[in-house]
Design a protein around this nucleic acid. Structure first.
Lengths: 136, 136
DNA sequence: GGTTGTTTATTAGTGTACAAACGAATAACC
DNA sequence: GGTTATTCGTTTGTACACTAATAAACAACC
């Protein structure tokens, strides 16, 4: 059987990611990227934490999370403060504006997920997500 | 039902992509990235073509494919030549070295795919790939 | 208390990925 | 033949994503 690029999981995963990013950006009104969105939602779930820990909890390495935090701070959604007990750490937390948009973010996220999964039935979505999670 | 980041298709897709990239790089001996690999395999499938067309056939925009072509050329896997019938076009084709590694690339690709899909049974892989393709 | 090892944050470098804008060449059309 | 539209390749700018290296701070240990 010949090797065909169009049948390879890595290539198809890349295409699926591209489509999701397209849907995300189409609906995005707050000017957030999927990565910034993930970090912001995660802070909402976890509460305040250090920059590196936030990176680990959103699967971003130290160099990536630094840039994301910088941009979220510039957009006013988070605030940074020194950790009183550990001089190495920077504590990242939601700003008042960040608190205000969390509900809006969740509604937005639901819409993006719905449209991304639109080609699949409800039963299929469940099966698909279960299998996809096993590949992470 | 609360919104949970860990259940969102976009976030999980990103994680699956990360794992695949990790597996790819672990086995990569030719120094290629997944993107460069895709472009090279595609030229092998299609034969010589213009730079922009190659980009379209590998889902890369004009700015991205330009960088990929530049690096594949620098590594000696492809060669570039002016299109005799269209002065705008650059014809991209496999170099002798590129031809030589195509079989090796296919074997490598099979291995990466196999390891990436290892958590799924044969039946599950078929179902999963079918559903994933519908999300592209 | 001092050594050892780890964690935190930063920086530099490479490689996707997309939007937007540009000039040059080609195609379509009247 | 000349206008219009499209295509091709390039460049600029922003944003992930990872590697590797660094310095500062902290923890564990004898």
């Amino acid at each position: 059987m010949a090797y065909r690029l169009d049948e390879q999981i890595g290539y198809i995963l890349r295409l699926a990611n591209q489509r999701h990013a397209l849907i995300f950006n189409k609906h995005s009104d707050l000017g957030l990227t999927p990565t910034q969105f993930a970090a912001l939602v995660r802070i909402g779930e976890m509460g305040a934490c250090s920059q590196n820990l936030l990176g680990r909890r959103t699967a971003m390495d130290v160099a990536t999370i630094k840039g994301v935090v910088t941009r979220l701070k510039a957009k006013g959604f988070i605030q940074l403060s020194p950790d009183p007990g550990d001089k190495r750490r920077t504590v990242v937390s939601l700003s008042a504006q960040g608190q205000d948009v969390i509900d809006q973010l969740h509604a937005f996220g639901e819409k993006v997920t719905e449209e991304t999964l639109a080609p699949l039935s409800d039963t299929e979505r469940k099966v698909f997500l279960d299998m996809l999670k096993r590949l992470t």
